Simulated scan of single mutants.
Amino acid sequence: MTTYAALLRGINVGGNRKLPMADLRQLMTGLGHDGVRTYLQSGQAVFASGHGDEESLAAELTRALQQRFGFSVDVIVRSHAYLRAVAEGCPFPAAELAAKQVHVTYFSSPVTAERFAEIDPAAHLPEEFRLGDRALYLYAPEGLGRSKLAEALSRPRGTKGVIATSRNWNTVLKLVELTAPRA
């Protein structure tokens, strides 16, 4: 069995696309996953599965959510090992910064620097971003809500078909913790 986190994009935001976490847990348990838990109301579920891989599990959950709730939800599924590698690979001194200053955007497939070539990094300083493996790290000293760089990054060219969803550093670390193997 592998432990995963499912990252759901754009649910329970501003009263739209409501998806109660109890219903999500029930749905995922019905799909045959073990130890299903949710974290916050913004769309994180942790589960164990002995079948499938990240992509097939995400596709399965996406279909099930559409059938059950009647609206489309983009889903990215990532294993504990991947989530831990993302946290350990942070290019910014996250331990020294407030959690609201560091964010990770997870992508459904690899992204290249060419996707962000039109963004002038110097024009957004002191904000910065770095690419990782299917992830983008953002340092936004004033937080995501005031970040001009985050706004520019949300519109990269050539992203058709690529799902992206962001989490703050607290959530990044919590997902690593929640997906860790239990003794």
Score class of each variant (00 low, 15 high):
64 A>T: 07
92 F>H: 01
84 R>M: 09
93 P>R: 02
75 V>R: 05
66 Q>T: 14
80 H>S: 08
56 S>W: 10
83 L>K: 02
56 S>M: 13
84 R>W: 04
86 V>C: 00
98 A>Q: 03
56 S>Y: 13
58 A>R: 05
65 L>F: 05
81 A>H: 10
63 R>S: 13
90 C>Q: 00
88 E>Y: 08
86 V>T: 02
96 E>W: 04
61 L>K: 09
97 L>E: 03
62 T>F: 13
91 P>H: 05
81 A>T: 11
94 A>W: 01
90 C>T: 00
84 R>G: 05
71 F>E: 07
64 A>C: 11
88 E>N: 13
87 A>I: 08
92 F>K: 01
82 Y>G: 01
71 F>H: 09
65 L>V: 06
73 V>Q: 11
89 G>R: 02
98 A>H: 03
83 L>E: 00
98 A>L: 07
71 F>D: 06
88 E>H: 08
58 A>C: 12
83 L>M: 04
83 L>C: 04
65 L>K: 03
79 S>V: 08
94 A>N: 00
82 Y>F: 12
61 L>V: 13
60 E>Q: 15
65 L>A: 02
91 P>W: 07
74 D>L: 12
81 A>D: 12
96 E>C: 03
98 A>K: 03
86 V>D: 00
84 R>H: 13
82 Y>D: 01
82 Y>T: 06
63 R>D: 13
